[in-house]
Design a binder for these strands. Structure first.
Length: 576
DNA sequence: GCCGTTTTCGGCCCGACTGTTTTCAGTCG
């Protein structure tokens, strides 16, 4: 089994947790966590980098020692330090995931009561033994019981973070409710929701409001609130029935920008920004930028960035993956927006597994202001979707030509979502593909091939001169199905060499390409098509999720295929 | 354990809330 970046990151995070419980140097612990994050954020496979003898210590947060440890993990799959720590600190690491229990408390519980696992802890708490420990009491004991219960329910459901689109359904009505409180002035959802991450762990809502507002009472009184975790003057936390934690912060208007920056994160971005401030003799917190004790900025995010000589950084970029350096040099990307999109290149109809007709989809797309759409029904191999064979595709082609002849609203491109078969051949013969404007190709079967075979399969398919766009390139379904084993670096380079393109599938369950792969495509010079994979009219709205992901991947209008008019697009996709 | 336009040694982001205490440590984000 090849060692993945996430394997290395998991090992480092475990080391950090164990050192934390053991009572290690907090900065050494942070170094391990930083390294875990750095490895996870890499756009390349760390195994490949080790194989090519690249200098890992050049990476931010990874020095000589950790570079060596990474090489060791790649070669053996293990880290001796971790094995050693696991022997010295024999406790189940799941314990640290219990809210309210940190390393210090776990250490005491395990040392003084011999508790080693969540199960032991549950039993001790339920039989009232925890409260006897000095520093612990009834409330802590009760909280432990409740949190273990919540954790168990969450594990059963199998997901810790909600998909962005699901969170949006919960956030919408809540935001409306809070906006209805007349003492509220500004309101925004910050956090990973604002950074448009594909999943969110909680919602951070920020408000400014009039003095003596009853906002906190109203907030904890919201109909969906199941449990109030904390309630203060400036900060309250609740858990909603749907399991989502929501934090509400009230900040003074002069601090709104500083607070928005602070609570939008990411944490790593904030730390990096604050470090710059520190060097300039300034202090940044959620209330503003301070020189000694005087506030010199804070009303807007832009002001705060200005004080540390950075240009404004879009929320989607705030991951400490190079955006700060780019802001300093003034070469941040001009990120793509929904308004740049001229058409949707992946749309299904009733002919296969869609729910609306070609005419209905075309009309809806016209109403969105699009210049063109591509009709991309499935090919015959996808039998469950009633995929098209040559005859039916031929009829659909005729139908589209007639449709285009009879209206001027929108151009409908003749296309297909064609299956890539196990051996890398395409599901329909070239004769019929020739008649299409555009050919999308997808893997819908044999997800469990080895990385080598899966990569070869896809690249062989790209050898066919009709191949234009690779759909949902890794096949992952967020929270449901892992990506299949595939070497994306090779796939992207193969696409570049052959004049092919990659899709960023905007379906909120897919968002595939992910942000890091988008950036990889951009750096390689492969243009990306942001498409919804709509199966019904409403699905066309998913474009905004694709845009969010693309922005996280630093994509500019010029990096995206469907920001171009069909006239230009047509030239780009023609293969030599 | 990392890092350097003050530094190769001595730093390493910062504040709110809670629970258990009588002034604060632990946890969280």
């Amino acid at each position: 089994m090849p060692v993945h970046n996430s394997d290395v990151a998991d090992i480092f995070n475990k080391v950090a947790d164990l050192l934390d419980i053991k009572g290690g140097n907090p900065f050494r612990i942070r170094a391990y966590r930083n390294a875990a994050r750095a490895v996870n954020a890499l756009s390349r496979n760390v195994s490949d980098m080790v194989a090519k003898k690249e200098d890992l210590s050049a990476l931010q947060g990874i020095g000589k020692d950790l570079a060596q440890k990474i090489a060791g993990i790649v070669q053996t799959g293990k880290l001796p330090l971790l094995d050693e720590l696991e022997k010295k600190v024999p406790i189940e690491l799941a314990m640290i995931k219990i809210q309210g229990l940190g390393p210090k408390k776990i250490k005491r519980i395990s040392q003084e009561m011999g508790i080693r696992s969540v199960e032991d802890l549950k039993e001790a708490a339920e039989s009232g033994k925890i409260r006897d420990l000095p520093g612990f009491a009834k409330k802590t004991e009760q909280a432990i019981i409740e949190e273990i219960d919540r954790m168990e329910r969450r594990n059963k459901a199998g997901k810790e973070r909600l998909k962005l689109a699901v969170a949006a359904q919960i956030a919408g009505p809540l935001l409306e409710y809070l906006q209805g409180i007349n003492s509220v002035k500004d309101i925004a959802i910050a956090g990973s929701y604002r950074r448009r991450r594909e999943t969110v762990g909680d919602l951070d809502i920020l408000v400014t409001c009039k003095k003596d507002s009853d906002i906190m009472d109203r907030f904890v009184g919201y109909e969906d609130v199941e449990k109030v975790l904390a309630k203060g003057k400036t900060r309250s936390s609740v858990i909603l029935r749907q399991g989502l934690q929501v934090d509400l912060r009230v900040v003074p208007q002069v601090s709104y920008g500083a607070a928005l920056l602070y609570f939008t994160g990411s944490k790593e971005h904030n730390i990096a920004v604050r470090k710059i401030a520190q060097k300039k003799g300034l202090k940044i917190n959620e209330y503003g930028v301070f020189k000694e004790d005087k506030r010199i900025a804070g009303k807007t995010e832009k002001q705060v960035y200005q004080e540390v000589e950075l240009s404004y950084i879009q929320p989607e970029l705030r991951e400490n993956r190079g955006e700060i350096e780019a802001a300093r040099k003034g070469n941040l990307p001009e990120l793509i927006t929904r308004d740049h999109i001229k058409g949707d290149l992946h749309i299904h109809t009733k002919q296969t597994d869609g729910h609306h007709s070609l005419e209905e989809m075309a009309h809806a797309a016209h109403e969105k202001g699009y210049e063109y759409i591509a009709i991309t029904d499935h090919s015959r191999h996808v039998t469950v979707a009633n995929g098209l064979d040559e005859k039916r595709l031929s009829r659909q082609i005729d139908q589209i030509e007639r449709f285009n002849d009879n209206q001027n609203e929108i151009l409908v491109l003749k296309s297909i979502e064609l299956d890539i078969l196990e051996d890398g051949s395409l599901d329909l013969p070239d004769d019929i593909l020739k008649r299409l404007d555009l050919v999308l190709c997808s893997v819908h079967s044999k997800f469990n091939l080895s990385s080598k075979k899966q990569t070869e399969r896809i690249i062989k398919a790209m050898d066919n001169p009709h191949f234009n766009i690779l759909c949902h390139p890794t096949g992952r379904l967020i929270n449901e199905r892992l990506p299949y084993e595939v070497n994306m670096e090779k796939v992207i380079h193969a696409a570049k060499e052959r004049g092919c393109f990659l899709e960023l599938n905007a379906h909120p369950d897919r968002l595939d390409l992910n942000d890091i792969h988008c950036q990889m495509a951009k750096d390689t010079g492969v243009k990306v098509a942001i498409s919804t994979d709509a199966h019904r009219i409403d699905d066309l709205n998913w474009m905004t999720y694709g845009i969010g992901q693309a922005r996280r991947g630093w994509l500019e209008p010029g990096d995206v295929l469907n920001t171009r008019s069909w006239k230009t697009l047509k030239k780009w996709i023609r293969r030599k």
